[in-house]
């Protein structure tokens, strides 16, 4: 079993590999490496690991390729254009007559006065009383609250 170095930790070696130490610290560490076999061995391992990692990521990045990226981009643009065309053709293509009929209906409704009684809500009194003539004194004109039903009430008592 090899003796563990007490001067530097594995973290210090990692920082040296990553070039995170100052130039003075680097020089001192490099001098120590020439003397300490344990630290030298760890440094070599970390260096190899770092090199392998950077090579792999570079390879992956290079593997994508500019042509491939361009092709993917073109596909995306085409797909977006197709969707836009489908929306337009949806309005004037497949269901053209249905939509035309719908538009015609809306236009026609706009041209003709709408009868609100179709919705079940009376728009005014059921009857407008223009004149009442009676020989009796008491006449009342009533409009009910809900349906606005007009009632004319006259009392026959003089």
């Amino acid at each position: 079993m090899e003796k563990k170095c007490e001067a530097y930790t594995s973290e210090d070696i990692s920082r040296l590999v990553d070039i995170e130490l100052s130039s003075d610290q680097c020089r001192a560490f490099e001098h120590h490496l020439s003397l300490c076999s344990e630290c030298s061995r760890l440094f070599s391992q970390y260096k190899d690991l770092s090199l392998a990692f950077s090579r792999h990521t570079h390879k992956e990045a290079m593997g994508i390729g500019a042509l491939h990226l361009e092709h993917k981009l073109e596909q995306k643009i085409q797909c977006s254009e197709k969707k836009t065309y489908q929306n337009i053709s949806g309005l004037f293509g497949k269901n053209f007559y249905l939509k035309l009929a719908g538009i015609a209906a809306v236009v026609m409704i706009g041209f003709f006065p709408f009868d609100p009684t179709l919705l079940g809500t009376p728009s005014g009194p059921s009857a407008i009383v223009n004149s009442v003539d009676t020989e009796y004194k008491s006449v009342m004109i009533i409009e009910t609250q809900k349906e606005k039903h007009t009632i004319i009430w006259f009392s026959e008592g003089t």
């Binding site: 009684t117 009376p122 005014g124 009194p125 059921s126 009857a127 407008i128 009383v129 223009n130 004149s131 009442v132 003539d133 009676t134 020989e135 009796y136 039903h149 007009t150 009632i151 004319i152 009430w153 006259f154 009392s155 026959e156």
Partner: peptide, 18 residues
Amino acid sequence: IFQTQVLLKNNSSITIGG
């Protein structure tokens, strides 16, 4: 004994009583 002139809404009704 009684007379009135009204404008009745189409498809609606008025009630006269007394």
